[in-house]
Nucleic acid binder design. Structure first.
Length: 490
DNA sequence: TCTGGGGTCCTAGGACCC
DNA sequence: TCTGGGGTCCTAGGACCC
């Protein structure tokens, strides 16, 4: 998908179409997740510090990510991909490899191109957003092709042209070559793919180590046999928080670690996992990062157990100079817990006992794994990390609903006020109104679908010029409450 | 107002075992 | 009283990816 998060926001918020939009962390230490193409003109790009983006592009719309929406769009696209082949390997919410051969596409450039173009049409029809397609004989080359295809395009790298095409490109083009590897290669006088190839495998292994050197050599030769793998097993689950200001108070650090442990376990359980190794991550004031881990005798999904392990690990860490980030993770995943094993063993013993006593052992009861958790607040709270009892936070970009004016989104808030723009994905650009932050008529909303359900017509992406949209009319906007069954209040 | 959050894979040393 | 060799597991750190 092209500039995925930003494009989704532009589709959802008509007033932002054609304008610079930057999605990412809005706090003092945030970074850019996605910049719209209009914002990239100013030099803003992914992973840039948000503070720098604001200097470069002060007039952009700065929005917090709405993962629920992105996940929904992503699911729709992934469903389309599965119609092409059973072999679909998602790389992230907005990118995936598809093995077309495994899906029965005739192995010709023409057939592949036709499938790719049809897919792009369908993506646009289903999501209202544009995606780009790269077609080639391997994952590496398909990825390079898709990057060249962006935005809103399709590129084929034809068999036989690979080495020639790769030769002059920067080593950074190759997967697995980041800043550190590029620097190591540069010191050896290697800048291009051709130079990498000419260095030879032995030299690359000497420079980069066994695995990395060997795989880089293959890539540089245009050889990439990695299969498309659907459904890889999760290996770890983790959560982390960067704090707006460094933490120095030890008690506060301990509290945050406990909270993170609970959140981590919440996600672990939601995924139906348990794990043996608990990892504590601490990033200090100077950005130096350390991890401490502890492996239990058996897998757990008990919040108390993880909390205690994390607290033990913290004991060995000096935090007096200030902590900027804390994280808790669980790895060594299993789909059962040690408690399950105990329960199973106990059940077996009981069954044996019962049999001896010539009773009927009750079967079936799979004993809900719930024993463990004096769980705190619902672990599922994904949208905004709310502290119980804290005042409502209106984050720019999030959905709201007003009892009188209907659906809208937070444009900004401060000094006790919140500014809302009332528009929906299928309205024209809407009007802005300001309220007190505690206005009872205002409540958090839910993301609306980007395309009007049962939609009459062209999606957002189709109307390129905002000029095409009807002139904003405040009454009409107000009326856009529309009979939609938008559900639920918190 | 420098540097998010969620992952994966690799390396290297030490413990431990056969 | 010299130190083998190979395997696995654990811990810590680092590179990389989106």
């Amino acid at each position: 998908m092209d500039a995925f998060f930003a494009a989704a926001e532009q589709a959802a918020k008509p007033s932002l179409r054609g304008k610079p939009v930057i999605v990412g962390g809005l706090g003092p230490r945030g970074v850019v997740a996605t910049a719209s193409y209009e914002a990239r003109v100013f030099g803003v790009h992914s992973a840039m510090a948000m503070a720098q983006a604001r200097r470069l592009c002060p007039n952009a719309a700065y929005l917090t990510p709405r993962f629920t929406l992105y996940r929904r769009v992503s699911d729709a696209v992934m469903t389309l991909l599965h119609t092409l082949s059973p072999l679909v390997e998602p790389l992230s919410l907005d990118e995936a490899f598809v093995d077309l051969e495994a899906g029965g596409t005739e192995p010709s450039v023409g057939a592949a191109r036709a499938v790719g173009e049809r897919l792009r049409t369908e993506i646009r029809a289903v999501t209202g957003l544009t995606g780009s397609v790269g077609l080639a004989g391997s994952k590496m080359l398909a990825k390079i092709a898709s990057e060249r295809a962006k935005p809103d395009g399709l590129v084929v790298i034809e068999p036989g042209t690979e080495r020639e095409l790769l030769a002059p490109l920067s080593v950074r083009t190759l997967p697995g070559v980041g800043p550190a590897t590029a620097e190591a290669l540069r010191r050896a006088g290697i800048h291009t793919v051709l130079e990498t190839r000419e260095a030879g495998e032995a030299e690359l292994v000497r420079l980069l180590g066994r695995a990395h050197g060997a795989s880089l050599y293959l890539m540089a030769c245009g050889r990439d046999e990695r299969p498309v793998v659907a459904e890889r097993d999760t290996k770890s689950v983790s959560v982390e928080d960067t704090f707006d200001v460094d933490l120095t108070d030890r008690t506060r650090v301990q509290l945050e670690v406990a909270r993170l442990a609970d959140r981590c376990v919440g996600r672990l359980r939601a995924a139906g996992h348990s794990g043996r190794t608990i990892v504590l991550k601490v990033r200090r004031y100077d950005f130096s990062t350390m991890t401490r881990s502890e492996t239990l005798r058996g897998p757990t999904d008990d919040p108390a157990v993880v909390r205690e392990a994390a607290a033990r690990l913290l004991e060995g860490v000096d935090t007096t100079a200030g902590v900027r980030l804390l994280g808790v993770g669980v790895s060594g995943l299993a789909d059962f817990t040690q408690e399950d094993l105990f329960a199973q063993a106990a059940q077996a013993a009981q069954a044996a006992e019962a049999a001896r006593a010539a009773h009927e052992a009750p079967e079936g009861g799979e004993a809900a794994p719930g024993g463990g958790g004096p769980e705190g607040p619902g672990a599922g709270a994904e949208g905004a990390a709310e502290h119980p009892g804290a005042p409502r936070r209106w984050l720019p970009g999030t959905d709201v609903r007003h009892s009188e004016f209907g659906e809208g989104w937070v444009q900004g808030s401060g000094v006790g006020r919140v500014t809302v723009r009332f528009e929906t994905p299928w309205s024209g650009p809407g009007r802005v109104r300001t309220f007190a932050v505690d206005d009872p008529a205002l409540e958090p909303g839910e993301p609306l679908p980007l395309l009007e359900p049962g939609g009459a017509g062209a999606g957002p992406a189709a109307s390129d010029g905002p000029g095409a949209a009807a002139a904003p009319d405040s009454d009409r906007v107000q009326g856009s409450g529309r009979g939609q069954p938008v559900t639920s209040s918190p």
